[in-house]
Simulated scan of single mutants.
Amino acid sequence: MGFIIRWVFALILLAATYNPTEWNYVRWSMANYEKSLSLTVLFGLILLVGYIIYLRATLRSIGVFGMILILAVVGTVLWVLFDQGVVSYADPTINTVIGIVALSLVLAVGLSWSIVRRRLSGQADVDDIDE
C-alpha cells in the first residue's frame, strides 16, 4: 500500500505540473503570471519542493543508472503493449498521459527502493551518521 501512495503522489506532482488538459501549472502560470505573479511563484516553489524530495530520494536510492533501467523496463512494457495491439500511440494526449505515468513510476520506485531492499535483504540503509 505504501508504494501505491508514493506513486499516486508522484502522479499528482507530475500531472499538476503538466497534463494534456488546461488544468495544470504550466498553462495556468503562462496565462496568469502578469496578474498573479506572487501566486505563480508560490505554486512553482511548492512544486519544486515536491520535485526535490522525489528526485533527491530517487537519486540517492537507485541513482541515474537505476532511473534509466526502470525507464527501460517501462518502455519495454509499452513496446510489448503496442506490439500486441493493446495501446496505440496515434493520440498525443494518450502519449502525454503515458509519459506522466512512466515518470511517476520511476519516482515512486526511487522513493520506495530503500524500503524494498531492506525487506528483501534484511539490511537497513544508513546514509547519514550522527556524531
Score class of each variant (00 low, 15 high):
M1K: 04
M1N: 03
M1R: 03
F3L: 11
I4R: 05
I4A: 14
I4Y: 08
V8P: 00
V8F: 13
F9R: 01
F9N: 00
F9A: 04
F9L: 11
A10N: 06
A10W: 01
I12G: 03
I12E: 02
L13Y: 00
L13T: 04
L13E: 01
L14E: 00
L14R: 01
L14M: 12
A15P: 01
A16I: 04
A16W: 04
T17E: 00
T17R: 00
Y18M: 00
N19Y: 02
N19F: 00
N19W: 00
P20R: 03
W23D: 07
Y25P: 01
R27L: 07
R27M: 07
M30S: 09
A31G: 05
A31P: 05
Y33M: 14
K35P: 00
K35Y: 11
S36E: 15
S36D: 14
L37C: 05
S38K: 12
S38P: 00
L39S: 14
L39G: 09
T40E: 06
V41Y: 06
V41L: 15
L42W: 07
F43L: 15
G44V: 08
G44A: 03
G44K: 04
G44W: 01
L45I: 14
L47W: 03
L47G: 02
L48Y: 06
L48F: 12
V49E: 02
V49W: 03
V49F: 05
Y51G: 04
I52A: 10
I52K: 01
I53V: 15
Y54R: 04
Y54Q: 05
Y54H: 08
L55A: 13
A57V: 00
A57D: 06
T58Y: 01
L59M: 13
L59V: 04
R60I: 06
S61L: 01
S61N: 14
G63C: 08
G63R: 07
F65H: 02
G66A: 12
G66S: 08
G66V: 07
M67T: 10
M67L: 09
I68S: 09
I68K: 00
L71Y: 11
A72N: 07
V73D: 03
V74E: 08
V74G: 02
T76P: 00
L78A: 07
L78S: 10
W79S: 13
L81Y: 06
D83T: 06
Q84D: 09
G85M: 10
V87D: 03
Y89C: 03
A90I: 12
D91R: 09
T93Y: 03
T93W: 01
T93D: 11
I94C: 05
N95W: 05
N95Q: 13
I98T: 11
G99F: 10
I100W: 06
V101M: 14
V101A: 15
A102V: 11
A102C: 10
L103G: 14
S104F: 08
S104H: 09
L105R: 02
V106T: 12
V106S: 12
L107D: 06
A108F: 11
V109N: 04
G110P: 05
G110R: 02
L111E: 11
W113P: 03
W113R: 11
W113H: 13
W113S: 06
S114T: 15
V116D: 08
V116M: 13
R119I: 10
L120D: 08
D125V: 14
V126A: 09
D127S: 09
D128M: 10
D128I: 15
D128N: 07
D128R: 10
I129V: 15
I129G: 02
D130Q: 10
D130T: 15
D130Y: 12
E131C: 01
